[in-house]
Design a binder for these strands. Structure first.
Lengths: 301, 301
DNA sequence: CTGCACCCGTTAGCGTTGCTACATGATCGA
DNA sequence: TCGATCATGTAGCAACGCTAACGGGTGCAG
């Protein structure tokens, strides 16, 4: 008979593509994963992993077992949901994955309110970049992830995941207090094409959007600074070196050496999204957590 | 997180109605079952068993988990089936439950033929009364059960089980070689109302049918002998003491001191049935085994 | 009402499982 | 060719899961 608990190992290898990566995800040694899959092979009487190069690929038989693992984990999720419905849904432990600025802007206040409203519900929080957050939910490592994408570049969701829109988060222009536009109530981005810019290093939609805009308006866009962290960008702006755009949600307190000015027209907007597994949709604890995140996001936006 | 392998214990308790009975079914101590369910309770954070009298009943939460167990075991069965399809279906081990006379009349020759045709397929055989055979299949202890009922008293099948009709098995009249009817080709049962009878001890349909027939025809039915085993009945007939009816299939060799005479009209008929779980319907090994049983039954009938 | 049988739960003890650390062989990139 | 990475074996140790034995509770018969 096949031991169903071993299937999580096989599923992890399937997701990650290698025994070592699966072991890292699960928090085990690669030896442990290898041994578990070895036993699974003897139980099933079939080869599950085929060595290819210095990695492995899953055989057709292994994919059958991965399917079974998905069914099994879905059954477990459904059962947990129904158990919580019986218990009233205010107990248990959830795991939340959250990208950095959403912790400040949404998760922290939402969890504070939730802790008062549902004291029996414990929520573990883990900071995780959006892509990793999605993986964490898929793998069951987290129950809910707060991620973001850009309205013009919506990420496609893996099967079995459902998304709940929390809030739209437009960017504002940030200029030094001494800047010529510092006193304005609003500003059109076109007025800034001749300024020096700081953007983030990664090639995000927001950065591409700024570059496209600048290139269309001027032959020599002056993006002299690249810094990933917003605090660094603010420091550069504060020094009077450049201008920047900054998302509104989860923005830290800014020094009075800079001014924040809303932009006119259509501006790059992050979408805050809560993601969880479809099989957990009925869990009251999940619904309550997502609800709390949504309320807080709406209040902050 | 809930350990899914423990659910088989809960499911067994649900089926049997008590911890002790579940332990007997699973081949464990009641202590082991109790401990496993205790851990399940701590994992789920809910009471699963409620003491009632000197037994237990399952709580609503426990029933939720039983549902999950059914889903999980179905997923396992489906996966096994698909694995066998990949492997060609000629490997693995099946467990067959069979009532005594079906072993002689059907299972033994069928397994003999199957062992030649599919040498990679191993079949474990266990003698089990029809009711116990059905339980064994439900619980997963056996994969296939050969059971019987009577055409006028069809057993209703539990959900999740499917039945395949193998053969009809009518009874014949058995008389001493010195009996006045011994030379006949066929006989109507009405001609035997004044004879002394032997029937089995249990209140089977066949026995009831004989008694009803005799009571309708005579005020003093003479059922002087009751013996469960057919060999004992034959011995009594052989001694010239009485007549009997005997199913045709799986009948052992009879001494020449008795004569077998087919009955005219509608006679009590056993239906041989192969039963397996619906989730295993696609397993080639299961199909092959049931097919072999069916062929042999048709040949014997 | 009292002994008795049955059943459920707990505890101590022991064998097995499953993990880590480490070593080995193989493969790919620089 | 060297170093990095990967998969998979082998000792050793902690945790798990089982059995055996005991205690508490319930229902039944005398």
């Amino acid at each position: 008979m096949i031991d169903l608990t071993r299937l999580v190992f096989l599923r992890a290898v399937h997701r990650r593509g290698s025994v070592a990566a699966a072991a890292r995800e699960l928090g085990y040694t690669s030896s442990a994963v290898s041994q578990q899959i070895g036993k699974l092979q003897r139980e099933a009487g079939v080869r599950l992993l085929e060595p290819v190069g210095r990695g492995v690929v899953l055989t057709d038989a292994a994919l059958v077992l991965v399917d079974a693992a998905v069914s099994v984990e879905a059954a477990r999720d459904v059962a947990l949901g129904r158990l919580e419905e019986l218990a009233g849904g205010l107990t248990g432990t959830l795991s939340l994955a959250c990208f950095p600025s959403a912790i400040r802007g949404v998760a922290a206040p939402a969890l504070g309110a939730l802790a008062k409203a549902a004291p029996g519900l414990r929520v573990r929080l883990r900071e995780l970049a959006p892509e990793l957050g999605l993986d964490a939910v898929t793998s069951g490592y987290a129950d809910v992830a707060v991620v973001h994408d850009w309205v013009d570049d919506r990420t496609t969701l893996a099967a079995g995941l459902v998304a709940v829109h929390l809030a739209d988060d437009p960017v504002d222009l940030v200029v030094p207090a001494t800047h010529r536009l510092a006193g304005r109530r609003t500003v059109a981005l076109a007025e800034t094409v001749d300024d020096v810019w700081v953007t983030d290093v990664s090639d995000s939609i927001c950065t591409r959007w700024i570059l496209d805009m600048l290139r269309a308006a001027t032959e020599q866009p002056r993006v002299d600074f690249r810094a990933e962290e917003y605090a660094s960008q603010v420091a550069l702006v504060s020094a009077g070196l450049c201008v920047a755009v900054l998302p509104r949600l989860g923005r830290p307190a800014l020094p009075d050496t800079v001014r924040v000015i809303p932009l006119q027209g259509s501006v790059p907007t992050r979408r805050f999204i809560a993601v969880h597994r479809a099989a957990t949709s009925r869990r009251p604890a999940i619904r309550r957590l997502v609800e709390a995140l949504g309320e807080q996001a709406a209040r902050a936006a």
